[in-house]
Structure formats: C-alpha cells, structure tokens
C-alpha cells in the first residue's frame, strides 16, 4: 500500500459517494440515468480495486450494457416524443 493507492482509492470512494448522492437527489430523470451509467463504471473500478475482477465483469455487463439501455428506454417511453431541442423549433431536414 503506497501513498498512490491511497490517493486512487480515496478519489474513487469520494467520487462514488458524491455521484450516488447527486443521482438520488436529481429531479431530471434523464440526467439521473446518465449519472447512474457513470456510477456503474466507477463501481466496476471499485470492484477491480477490491481484486474481484469477476464481479467487475458482471458489473460492467449489467450497468453499462443492461441497466443503461433499459433505463434510457424507460425514460424515453415516459417522456413525450421529440424532447431534445428546446431552443429550436421543429426545423428538421
């Protein structure tokens, strides 16, 4: 355990706690989903630091692959169609 590992682990833990808090207290659902995807990545890194690469593998597949896609799909189904451009009218083509 050198000082560098302490720094790395401390940063990772602090970022995860901050990210968890901000995604739970977020009102905008889409923003919360994106934060959740980022959180899943840091979670996988944490499993790696705990020397559990198999769980990290599962975490990567579930958080990046499965939950991200499912949650985005759900948020898209909840919201009205064509939600993105707020400052531009439907000037497509």
């Amino acid at each position: 355990m050198t000082a560098l590992t302490w720094i790395f682990d401390g940063l990772l833990t602090a970022a995860m706690v901050y990210l968890a808090w901000s995604l739970l207290s977020e009102r905008d659902l889409f923003k919360a989903v994106v934060l959740f995807i980022a959180f899943g990545l840091l979670m996988a890194l944490a499993w790696v630091r705990l020397r559990a690469p198999d769980i990290a593998l599962a975490e990567a597949a579930i958080s990046a692959g499965l939950s991200g896609v499912l949650l985005l799909d759900a948020v898209g189904a909840i919201r009205s169609p064509n939600p993105v451009p707020e400052d531009t009218s439907s000037d497509s083509g």
Partner: peptide, 9 residues
Amino acid sequence: SFVRRYWPV
C-alpha cells in the same frame, strides 16, 4: 440506445 429510443427523430 439513447439515439434510437430516447431521441428518435
């Protein structure tokens, strides 16, 4: 998934 499902223009 975001492009196809959340933002399907």
